[in-house]
């Protein structure tokens, strides 16, 4: 069914205000969008990795979730979710429940790319009927902006600060979306917050309503960690896509689909210059960092185009 923005936005809110995420936090947008992608009438259980989101959305006795929710630890959202799904299967089989439930795991890049990676990989391999959403804000924000394997090269984080002898993080960002695609699960996608949220919504909906495991990677800017004024979030997301730093694509049953081709691919500095974490890259003498970042994006983009048959 075609995306109808007004209809989708008129649904009852399933991730409510009153949570304690920072003003302008991208994670809140992922949660709202993810829950909106559920068909009305379908119930859900959310399994949350320890993260900014967790400590902000279920601070006893206040839950921001209208649906059942479980947080167990930092590194095991996927396995916990698998356990809930297993319980559902057996309860269904034994005729103990009639309702349809969907199982959504959600973690930040720390709980997904790094400490929770084994748990995620295992759950996806086992084929649980669940979706794992990663709200990727490219560092351990909950503990104070330490680098993760998702932090892009040259970003300044509190454990990879820029300094007279440092231009920020030394390594490139791990490509988790590709790694998840290599699990040969039925659905993998990456998206972010754009325009009327059509891209996000359609991917979240497809992920939830694909039988078997699915993974959605959502670039979710963090104003504090990326050092930008809160209201700049939409612009940053737009630039991530227009520069091809964060291409929109999905892998359906092993087939790669590019969802958006920029009319004119913008230089990567258009994305970087909006954020304080790359500020040092623009200092005289550090021009090479931007060149290197550009080269990396270009290489990745060409590979992606080839994979998507473009």
């Amino acid at each position: 069914m075609a995306y109808n923005h007004k209809v989708e936005l008129s649904k009852p809110e399933r991730f409510v205000g009153g949570h304690r995420l920072c003003a302008g936090c991208g994670a809140g947008l992922v949660c709202r969008g993810m829950m909106r992608a559920l068909d009305e009438g379908d119930k859900a259980v959310i399994c949350n990795a320890t993260s900014c989101l967790e400590v902000s959305s279920f601070l006893y006795p206040f839950t921001a979730w209208e649906d059942s929710y479980i947080h167990s630890a930092f590194e095991n959202a996927a396995a916990t979710c698998g356990g809930v799904e297993a319980a559902y299967n057996v309860m269904k089989r034994r005729g103990k429940i009639d309702d349809t439930y969907k199982f959504l795991a959600i973690g930040g890049d720390g709980g997904t790319y790094d400490i929770g990676f084994q748990s995620l990989s295992g759950a996806m391999e086992r084929g649980h009927d669940m979706v794992y959403f990663c709200y990727d804000n490219e560092a351990y924000m909950n503990t104070g902006i330490q680098r993760s394997s998702s932090t892009p090269r040259f970003a300044s984080a509190t454990t990879t600060p820029s300094g007279s002898c440092s231009v920020g993080k030394k390594q490139n960002k791990k490509d988790l979306t590709e790694i998840m695609a290599a699990h040969n699960i039925p659905y993998v996608a990456q998206t972010t917050f754009l325009g009327n949220f059509k891209d996000f919504h359609e991917k979240a909906h497809r992920a939830i309503y694909t039988e078997g495991p699915a993974f959605v990677n959502v670039m979710s800017p963090c104003p504090r960690g990326w050092q930008y004024p809160t209201e700049m979030l939409p612009e940053i997301c737009k630039m991530a896509v227009e520069t091809c730093v964060w291409p929109l694509y999905e892998i359906i049953d092993g087939e790669w689909h590019l969802n958006y081709m920029p009319k004119k691919k913008l230089p990567v500095e258009e994305f970087m210059k909006l954020q304080g974490r790359f500020k040092h890259c623009f200092k005289p003498g550090n021009e090479w960092t931007i060149e290197a970042a550009q080269q990396y994006v270009d290489e990745k983009w060409e590979k992606l185009l080839a994979r998507c048959g473009k």
Binding site: K6, V7, L9, S10, E13, F15, V16, G17, G18, H19, L21, A23, G24, C25, G26, A27, G28, L29, R32, G33, R36, F193, N196, F197, L233, P234
Partner: peptide, 13 residues
């Protein structure tokens, strides 16, 4: 959809 705090209520479009 851009409000992280679900503070823009929408009813019937």
């Amino acid at each position: 959809p851009f409000c992280p705090d679900a503070s823009i209520p929408v009813t019937d479009g």
